[in-house]
Design a protein around this nucleic acid. Sequence first.
DNA 1: CTTACGGCCTGGGTGC
DNA 2: TGCACCCAGGCCGTAA
Length: 283
Amino acid sequence: MPELPEVETVARGLREALPGRRILDVRLGKTDFIENPAAIEEQLPGKQIRAVKRHGKFLLLELASANTDEAAHELVLLIHLGMTGQIVTCPPEAPVPLHTHVFLALDDGKELRYTDIRRFGSMQLLVDGARAKALQSLGADPLEMTEAQFKAAVGARRARVKALLLDQHVMSGMGNIYTDEALWRARIHPMRIGATLKRDEMARLYRAVRDVLTEAIRLRGSSVSDYVDSKGQRGEFQLRHRVYQRDGKKCFRCGATIRRAIVAGRSSHFCPKCQRAPRKVKA
DNA sequence: CTTACGGCCTGGGTGC
DNA sequence: TGCACCCAGGCCGTAA
């Protein structure tokens, strides 16, 4: 699933292929995941892609009018990959995978394609001030948070730490895989309440979140099911998973059996020995 | 304000 | 071989 490291890997790939390119043509398949498909069909042709940005799990393509005499509007294509979204550049004659719903013809002869089996992703064209509004409720990127900001965000809440790390308003970019992996590294049980974390636990968690995300970016993300980068290549961090989908197997640290439980409505994987359950919360 | 939960969507796996 | 069923989870809307 695309979480921060996967989206960052896609963004880095797109930065090599897109800036400076002009969009010549737009073709759409199913559009129920696009906020305003007509706007995309009408506005994108002729626009130049200026930059590729990432905010949490969102990709932003910054666009500009190719005509300099047109009034300058801030125009951004906001893309979320959901669970199964893939965004790839390829020659237009390359075979079209099933569930490919957006085709952008580019002025270098390549095509930018969006494929999304389950259509949990989303696409939205933001004009002028809409960008700030769309992103304002999202928390900071965990890789850009200071330890003090992290403590303030997590330590002030009575929700389970698993839910807090997953909450994009607390910090944006963590999903189920990296949340479980970070909690294992920090030796903190997913059901612990944020406000009850001790100083050293909070420090370990901050460290663990940053380390796991940084290492996952280095290995180009985790390809568990559908994830591929902008060149269609799989990541390798799934080979380094220590708990995610390893229930029934042995903990790499202590040899106990990894367990799975539903926490915050999500399947959660943890070592019952390294990550001690809180007393009051039922396991 | 908080947390909980159903719904969206498809494919892969399982059990009968 | 087919088919019903469940599960994966990011995010949003609604309910309590």
